[in-house]
Design a protein around this nucleic acid. Structure first.
Lengths: 163, 163
DNA sequence: TATATGCCGGATGAAAAATATCCGCAATGA
DNA sequence: TCATTGCGGATATTTTTCATCCGGCATATA
Protein backbone atom coordinates (compact mmCIF):
# COMPACT_ATOMS: atom_id res chain seq x y z
CA UNK A 1 0.00 0.00 0.00
CA UNK A 2 1.62 3.21 -1.07
CA UNK A 3 0.58 6.82 -1.20
CA UNK A 4 1.26 8.91 -4.31
CA UNK A 5 4.27 11.17 -4.00
CA UNK A 6 2.10 14.05 -5.16
CA UNK A 7 0.75 14.24 -1.61
CA UNK A 8 4.21 15.01 -0.29
CA UNK A 9 4.71 17.67 -2.95
CA UNK A 10 1.34 19.26 -2.24
CA UNK A 11 1.94 19.34 1.50
CA UNK A 12 5.29 21.06 1.06
CA UNK A 13 3.74 23.42 -1.46
CA UNK A 14 1.12 24.44 1.09
CA UNK A 15 3.80 25.00 3.71
CA UNK A 16 5.56 27.30 1.28
CA UNK A 17 2.34 29.14 0.45
CA UNK A 18 1.74 29.73 4.14
CA UNK A 19 4.83 31.96 4.13
CA UNK A 20 3.67 33.91 1.11
CA UNK A 21 3.23 37.67 1.63
CA UNK A 22 -0.40 38.80 1.78
CA UNK A 23 -1.98 39.82 -1.47
CA UNK A 24 0.51 38.02 -3.66
CA UNK A 25 0.34 34.80 -5.65
CA UNK A 26 2.97 32.19 -6.40
CA UNK A 27 2.95 30.59 -9.88
CA UNK A 28 3.05 26.80 -10.11
CA UNK A 29 6.35 27.02 -11.97
CA UNK A 30 7.90 28.88 -9.03
CA UNK A 31 6.60 26.32 -6.54
CA UNK A 32 8.09 23.57 -8.67
CA UNK A 33 11.41 25.36 -8.92
CA UNK A 34 11.52 25.90 -5.18
CA UNK A 35 11.12 22.17 -4.55
CA UNK A 36 12.96 20.96 -7.62
CA UNK A 37 10.10 18.82 -8.89
CA UNK A 38 8.65 18.47 -12.43
CA UNK A 39 6.70 21.69 -13.14
CA UNK A 40 4.01 20.21 -15.37
CA UNK A 41 3.21 17.43 -12.96
CA UNK A 42 3.17 19.61 -9.89
CA UNK A 43 0.80 21.93 -11.76
CA UNK A 44 -1.65 19.04 -11.97
CA UNK A 45 -1.56 18.57 -8.23
CA UNK A 46 -1.98 22.29 -7.64
CA UNK A 47 -5.08 22.17 -9.79
CA UNK A 48 -6.39 19.38 -7.57
CA UNK A 49 -5.78 21.52 -4.50
CA UNK A 50 -7.64 24.37 -6.17
CA UNK A 51 -10.61 22.14 -7.06
CA UNK A 52 -10.76 21.05 -3.42
CA UNK A 53 -10.84 24.65 -2.26
CA UNK A 54 -7.57 24.43 -0.34
CA UNK A 55 -5.81 27.00 -2.51
CA UNK A 56 -7.17 29.68 -4.79
CA UNK A 57 -5.74 30.41 -8.20
CA UNK A 58 -5.48 33.61 -10.18
CA UNK A 59 -4.90 33.43 -13.90
CA UNK A 60 -3.05 35.75 -16.16
CA UNK A 61 -0.09 37.99 -15.53
CA UNK A 62 0.54 38.54 -11.81
CA UNK A 63 -1.46 35.41 -11.11
CA UNK A 64 -0.52 32.32 -9.13
CA UNK A 65 -1.61 30.29 -6.15
CA UNK A 66 -2.27 31.23 -2.55
CA UNK A 67 -3.90 29.50 0.41
CA UNK A 68 -7.68 29.75 0.43
CA UNK A 69 -7.88 29.88 4.25
CA UNK A 70 -5.58 30.38 7.19
CA UNK A 71 -3.18 27.48 7.86
CA UNK A 72 -4.98 26.54 11.09
CA UNK A 73 -8.02 25.59 9.02
CA UNK A 74 -6.18 23.33 6.58
CA UNK A 75 -5.47 19.76 7.63
CA UNK A 76 -3.12 17.22 6.13
CA UNK A 77 -6.13 14.98 5.60
CA UNK A 78 -7.72 17.57 3.33
CA UNK A 79 -4.53 17.86 1.31
CA UNK A 80 -4.15 14.10 0.97
CA UNK A 81 -7.78 13.70 -0.02
CA UNK A 82 -7.49 16.42 -2.65
CA UNK A 83 -4.41 14.96 -4.32
CA UNK A 84 -4.74 11.24 -3.75
CA UNK A 85 -8.51 10.91 -3.70
CA UNK A 86 -10.63 9.99 -0.72
CA UNK A 87 -11.59 6.46 -1.66
CA UNK A 88 -10.86 3.87 1.02
CA UNK A 89 -7.67 1.87 0.60
CA UNK A 90 -9.42 -1.41 1.27
CA UNK A 91 -11.94 -2.44 -1.38
CA UNK A 92 -14.43 -5.12 -0.44
CA UNK A 93 -15.21 -7.28 -3.44
CA UNK A 94 -17.83 -9.30 -1.56
CA UNK A 95 -15.90 -12.52 -1.72
CA UNK A 96 -18.37 -13.99 0.71
CA UNK A 97 -20.99 -14.02 -2.05
CA UNK A 98 -18.82 -16.02 -4.42
CA UNK A 99 -17.90 -19.68 -4.69
CA UNK A 100 -19.76 -22.92 -3.93
CA UNK A 101 -20.76 -21.80 -0.41
CA UNK A 102 -21.32 -18.17 -1.31
CA UNK A 103 -23.83 -16.21 0.70
CA UNK A 104 -26.87 -14.82 -1.08
CA UNK A 105 -27.13 -11.02 -1.33
CA UNK A 106 -30.12 -10.93 1.03
CA UNK A 107 -27.97 -12.60 3.70
CA UNK A 108 -25.40 -9.82 3.47
CA UNK A 109 -27.27 -7.06 5.19
CA UNK A 110 -24.28 -6.17 7.34
CA UNK A 111 -20.91 -5.24 5.89
CA UNK A 112 -18.34 -8.00 5.84
CA UNK A 113 -16.46 -8.19 9.15
CA UNK A 114 -13.11 -8.06 7.40
CA UNK A 115 -13.99 -4.94 5.43
CA UNK A 116 -15.46 -3.37 8.57
CA UNK A 117 -12.21 -3.91 10.47
CA UNK A 118 -10.04 -2.39 7.75
CA UNK A 119 -12.37 0.56 7.33
CA UNK A 120 -12.32 1.17 11.08
CA UNK A 121 -8.53 1.31 10.93
CA UNK A 122 -8.74 3.78 8.07
CA UNK A 123 -11.03 5.94 10.17
CA UNK A 124 -8.40 5.97 12.90
CA UNK A 125 -5.85 7.02 10.28
CA UNK A 126 -8.07 9.80 9.01
CA UNK A 127 -8.95 11.04 12.48
CA UNK A 128 -5.26 11.41 13.22
CA UNK A 129 -4.49 13.34 10.03
CA UNK A 130 -7.52 15.56 10.45
CA UNK A 131 -6.00 16.71 13.71
CA UNK A 132 -2.80 17.95 12.08
CA UNK A 133 -3.12 21.44 10.68
CA UNK A 134 -0.81 23.16 8.28
CA UNK A 135 -0.17 25.67 11.07
CA UNK A 136 1.09 22.86 13.31
CA UNK A 137 3.45 21.67 10.60
CA UNK A 138 4.80 25.17 10.06
CA UNK A 139 5.24 25.59 13.81
CA UNK A 140 7.26 22.37 13.98
CA UNK A 141 9.57 23.70 11.28
CA UNK A 142 10.18 27.20 12.60
CA UNK A 143 10.36 25.95 16.14
CA UNK A 144 14.09 25.38 15.97
CA UNK A 145 16.19 28.48 15.64
CA UNK A 146 17.32 29.10 12.09
CA UNK A 147 16.94 32.80 11.27
CA UNK A 148 19.24 32.74 8.26
CA UNK A 149 17.26 30.10 6.44
CA UNK A 150 14.01 31.86 7.19
CA UNK A 151 15.37 35.08 5.74
CA UNK A 152 16.56 33.33 2.59
CA UNK A 153 13.14 31.77 2.03
CA UNK A 154 11.45 35.12 2.55
CA UNK A 155 13.77 36.77 0.07
CA UNK A 156 13.18 34.02 -2.48
CA UNK A 157 9.43 34.39 -2.08
CA UNK A 158 9.51 38.15 -2.57
CA UNK A 159 11.54 37.67 -5.69
CA UNK A 160 9.25 35.07 -7.19
CA UNK A 161 5.78 36.05 -6.01
CA UNK A 162 3.41 38.03 -8.18
CA UNK A 163 0.88 40.57 -7.15
CA UNK B 1 -3.82 4.96 -1.92
CA UNK B 2 -5.03 1.46 -2.41
CA UNK B 3 -4.40 -1.87 -0.74
CA UNK B 4 -3.78 -4.94 -2.86
CA UNK B 5 -6.77 -7.19 -3.19
CA UNK B 6 -4.59 -10.12 -2.11
CA UNK B 7 -5.06 -8.93 1.46
CA UNK B 8 -8.79 -9.48 1.21
CA UNK B 9 -8.24 -12.93 -0.25
CA UNK B 10 -5.72 -13.88 2.41
CA UNK B 11 -7.97 -12.69 5.23
CA UNK B 12 -10.88 -14.73 3.94
CA UNK B 13 -8.58 -17.70 3.41
CA UNK B 14 -7.50 -17.50 7.06
CA UNK B 15 -11.13 -17.35 8.17
CA UNK B 16 -11.79 -20.50 6.17
CA UNK B 17 -8.72 -22.22 7.60
CA UNK B 18 -9.91 -21.43 11.11
CA UNK B 19 -12.86 -23.77 10.48
CA UNK B 20 -10.64 -26.57 9.21
CA UNK B 21 -10.82 -29.84 11.19
CA UNK B 22 -7.79 -30.55 13.33
CA UNK B 23 -4.97 -32.50 11.77
CA UNK B 24 -6.03 -31.79 8.20
CA UNK B 25 -4.68 -29.47 5.52
CA UNK B 26 -6.44 -27.52 2.78
CA UNK B 27 -4.70 -27.25 -0.63
CA UNK B 28 -4.33 -23.83 -2.17
CA UNK B 29 -6.44 -24.97 -5.11
CA UNK B 30 -9.31 -25.80 -2.76
CA UNK B 31 -9.07 -22.42 -1.03
CA UNK B 32 -9.17 -20.73 -4.43
CA UNK B 33 -12.15 -22.79 -5.54
CA UNK B 34 -14.01 -21.97 -2.32
CA UNK B 35 -13.60 -18.25 -2.91
CA UNK B 36 -13.73 -18.37 -6.70
CA UNK B 37 -10.43 -16.54 -7.19
CA UNK B 38 -7.47 -17.32 -9.54
CA UNK B 39 -5.72 -20.42 -8.11
CA UNK B 40 -2.19 -19.60 -9.23
CA UNK B 41 -2.33 -16.09 -7.83
CA UNK B 42 -3.88 -17.04 -4.55
CA UNK B 43 -1.15 -19.65 -4.19
CA UNK B 44 1.39 -16.82 -4.24
CA UNK B 45 -0.35 -15.07 -1.40
CA UNK B 46 -0.60 -18.30 0.59
CA UNK B 47 3.15 -18.69 0.20
CA UNK B 48 3.55 -15.19 1.63
CA UNK B 49 1.40 -16.15 4.62
CA UNK B 50 3.55 -19.25 5.10
CA UNK B 51 6.78 -17.23 4.96
CA UNK B 52 5.37 -14.91 7.60
CA UNK B 53 4.58 -17.85 9.86
CA UNK B 54 0.83 -17.26 9.85
CA UNK B 55 0.03 -20.56 8.17
CA UNK B 56 2.03 -23.75 7.85
CA UNK B 57 2.26 -25.73 4.66
CA UNK B 58 2.63 -29.46 4.09
CA UNK B 59 3.82 -30.70 0.75
CA UNK B 60 3.00 -33.84 -1.09
CA UNK B 61 -0.11 -35.92 -1.16
CA UNK B 62 -2.42 -35.15 1.78
CA UNK B 63 -0.69 -31.80 2.12
CA UNK B 64 -2.16 -28.34 2.23
CA UNK B 65 -2.34 -25.26 4.42
CA UNK B 66 -3.46 -24.83 7.99
CA UNK B 67 -3.21 -22.05 10.56
CA UNK B 68 0.11 -21.91 12.39
CA UNK B 69 -1.48 -20.72 15.65
CA UNK B 70 -4.92 -20.34 17.18
CA UNK B 71 -7.08 -17.60 15.62
CA UNK B 72 -6.88 -15.45 18.76
CA UNK B 73 -3.16 -15.01 18.11
CA UNK B 74 -3.45 -13.92 14.49
CA UNK B 75 -4.25 -10.27 13.77
CA UNK B 76 -5.43 -8.64 10.58
CA UNK B 77 -2.30 -6.48 10.73
CA UNK B 78 -0.09 -9.55 10.51
CA UNK B 79 -2.03 -10.81 7.50
CA UNK B 80 -1.88 -7.46 5.73
CA UNK B 81 1.84 -7.12 6.43
CA UNK B 82 2.53 -10.60 5.12
CA UNK B 83 0.69 -10.11 1.85
CA UNK B 84 1.05 -6.41 1.15
CA UNK B 85 4.40 -5.75 2.80
CA UNK B 86 5.00 -3.65 5.88
CA UNK B 87 6.61 -0.61 4.31
CA UNK B 88 4.96 2.69 5.24
CA UNK B 89 2.50 4.10 2.71
CA UNK B 90 4.03 7.56 2.90
CA UNK B 91 7.57 7.82 1.54
CA UNK B 92 9.56 10.86 2.48
CA UNK B 93 11.82 11.90 -0.38
CA UNK B 94 13.46 14.67 1.63
CA UNK B 95 12.09 17.44 -0.52
CA UNK B 96 13.30 19.92 2.09
CA UNK B 97 16.87 19.21 1.01
CA UNK B 98 16.21 20.04 -2.61
CA UNK B 99 15.87 23.27 -4.54
CA UNK B 100 17.41 26.72 -4.20
CA UNK B 101 16.60 27.02 -0.47
CA UNK B 102 17.18 23.36 0.31
CA UNK B 103 18.34 22.46 3.78
CA UNK B 104 21.72 20.82 4.21
CA UNK B 105 21.75 17.20 5.43
CA UNK B 106 23.29 18.20 8.77
CA UNK B 107 20.33 20.50 9.39
CA UNK B 108 17.92 17.59 9.01
CA UNK B 109 18.55 15.79 12.24
CA UNK B 110 14.83 15.45 12.96
CA UNK B 111 12.44 13.74 10.57
CA UNK B 112 10.43 16.10 8.38
CA UNK B 113 7.28 17.26 10.16
CA UNK B 114 5.09 16.23 7.26
CA UNK B 115 6.50 12.72 7.15
CA UNK B 116 6.23 12.47 10.93
CA UNK B 117 2.54 13.37 10.81
CA UNK B 118 1.72 10.81 8.14
CA UNK B 119 3.70 8.12 9.90
CA UNK B 120 1.90 8.86 13.14
CA UNK B 121 -1.40 8.35 11.35
CA UNK B 122 -0.13 5.06 9.98
CA UNK B 123 0.76 3.98 13.50
CA UNK B 124 -2.84 4.67 14.55
CA UNK B 125 -3.99 2.55 11.61
CA UNK B 126 -1.68 -0.29 12.57
CA UNK B 127 -2.61 -0.15 16.24
CA UNK B 128 -6.24 -0.54 15.29
CA UNK B 129 -5.65 -3.53 13.02
CA UNK B 130 -3.34 -5.19 15.53
CA UNK B 131 -6.29 -5.24 17.91
CA UNK B 132 -8.48 -7.25 15.57
CA UNK B 133 -7.86 -11.00 15.78
CA UNK B 134 -8.99 -13.64 13.36
CA UNK B 135 -11.04 -15.05 16.22
CA UNK B 136 -12.92 -11.76 16.50
CA UNK B 137 -13.67 -11.81 12.78
CA UNK B 138 -14.94 -15.37 12.97
CA UNK B 139 -17.08 -14.49 15.97
CA UNK B 140 -18.64 -11.60 14.07
CA UNK B 141 -19.58 -13.96 11.25
CA UNK B 142 -21.03 -16.83 13.28
CA UNK B 143 -22.69 -14.45 15.68
CA UNK B 144 -25.88 -14.30 13.67
CA UNK B 145 -27.87 -17.52 13.51
CA UNK B 146 -27.32 -19.46 10.30
CA UNK B 147 -26.99 -23.15 11.09
CA UNK B 148 -27.62 -24.34 7.53
CA UNK B 149 -24.79 -22.33 6.05
CA UNK B 150 -22.42 -23.45 8.77
CA UNK B 151 -23.23 -27.07 8.07
CA UNK B 152 -22.69 -26.64 4.34
CA UNK B 153 -19.27 -25.09 4.90
CA UNK B 154 -18.30 -27.87 7.27
CA UNK B 155 -19.37 -30.48 4.74
CA UNK B 156 -17.43 -28.76 1.98
CA UNK B 157 -14.33 -28.64 4.14
CA UNK B 158 -14.50 -32.32 5.02
CA UNK B 159 -14.86 -33.14 1.38
CA UNK B 160 -11.90 -31.04 0.29
CA UNK B 161 -9.45 -31.26 3.18
CA UNK B 162 -6.56 -33.66 3.21
CA UNK B 163 -5.02 -35.53 6.11
C1' DT C 1 10.10 -47.95 -5.41
C1' DA C 2 6.85 -45.82 -8.36
C1' DT C 3 3.26 -42.49 -8.63
C1' DA C 4 0.22 -38.91 -7.77
C1' DT C 5 -0.33 -34.95 -5.14
C1' DG C 6 0.95 -30.44 -3.68
C1' DC C 7 4.05 -26.60 -2.22
C1' DC C 8 8.16 -23.48 -3.67
C1' DG C 9 10.38 -20.11 -6.31
C1' DG C 10 11.63 -17.99 -10.44
C1' DA C 11 10.53 -16.37 -15.07
C1' DT C 12 7.38 -14.31 -17.83
C1' DG C 13 3.52 -11.83 -19.67
C1' DA C 14 -0.70 -8.73 -19.50
C1' DA C 15 -3.28 -5.11 -17.42
C1' DA C 16 -3.70 -1.16 -14.70
C1' DA C 17 -2.07 2.81 -12.31
C1' DA C 18 1.19 6.33 -11.38
C1' DT C 19 4.25 9.51 -13.35
C1' DA C 20 5.27 13.05 -16.62
C1' DT C 21 4.77 16.05 -20.68
C1' DC C 22 2.51 18.84 -24.11
C1' DC C 23 -0.94 21.70 -26.30
C1' DG C 24 -4.94 24.60 -27.14
C1' DC C 25 -7.88 27.54 -24.61
C1' DA C 26 -9.44 31.10 -21.41
C1' DA C 27 -8.45 34.78 -18.36
C1' DT C 28 -5.91 38.70 -16.71
C1' DG C 29 -2.78 42.55 -16.16
C1' DA C 30 0.65 45.57 -18.39
C1' DT D 1 -2.25 43.73 -28.24
C1' DC D 2 0.89 40.79 -25.91
C1' DA D 3 3.12 38.20 -22.39
C1' DT D 4 1.82 35.55 -18.50
C1' DT D 5 -0.61 32.04 -16.01
C1' DG D 6 -4.03 28.57 -14.75
C1' DC D 7 -7.34 24.83 -16.79
C1' DG D 8 -8.39 20.63 -18.90
C1' DG D 9 -7.73 17.06 -22.15
C1' DA D 10 -4.78 14.01 -24.79
C1' DT D 11 -0.84 11.38 -24.81
C1' DA D 12 3.44 8.98 -23.70
C1' DT D 13 6.48 6.63 -20.37
C1' DT D 14 7.50 4.08 -16.40
C1' DT D 15 6.31 1.38 -12.54
C1' DT D 16 3.33 -1.65 -10.04
C1' DT D 17 -0.01 -4.96 -9.73
C1' DC D 18 -2.27 -8.89 -11.31
C1' DA D 19 -1.93 -13.43 -13.20
C1' DT D 20 -0.06 -17.60 -15.28
C1' DC D 21 3.22 -21.17 -16.15
C1' DC D 22 6.93 -24.31 -15.37
C1' DG D 23 10.72 -27.09 -13.25
C1' DG D 24 11.98 -28.79 -8.89
C1' DC D 25 11.35 -30.81 -4.53
C1' DA D 26 8.88 -33.07 -0.70
C1' DT D 27 5.54 -36.44 0.98
C1' DA D 28 1.89 -39.96 1.45
C1' DT D 29 0.11 -44.03 -0.52
C1' DA D 30 0.08 -48.23 -3.12
Amino acid sequence: MRMGEGVEWAAHACVLLSALPDGTGLPAAAIAAYHDVPPAYLAKHMQALARAGIVTSARGAAGGYRLARPPQEISLMQIADAVDGSEPAFRCTEIRQRGPCGAKPEECTKTCGIAAAFWAAERAYRRQLEGVSLAAIVASLTGRPDPGKFARVKAWLEQNANG
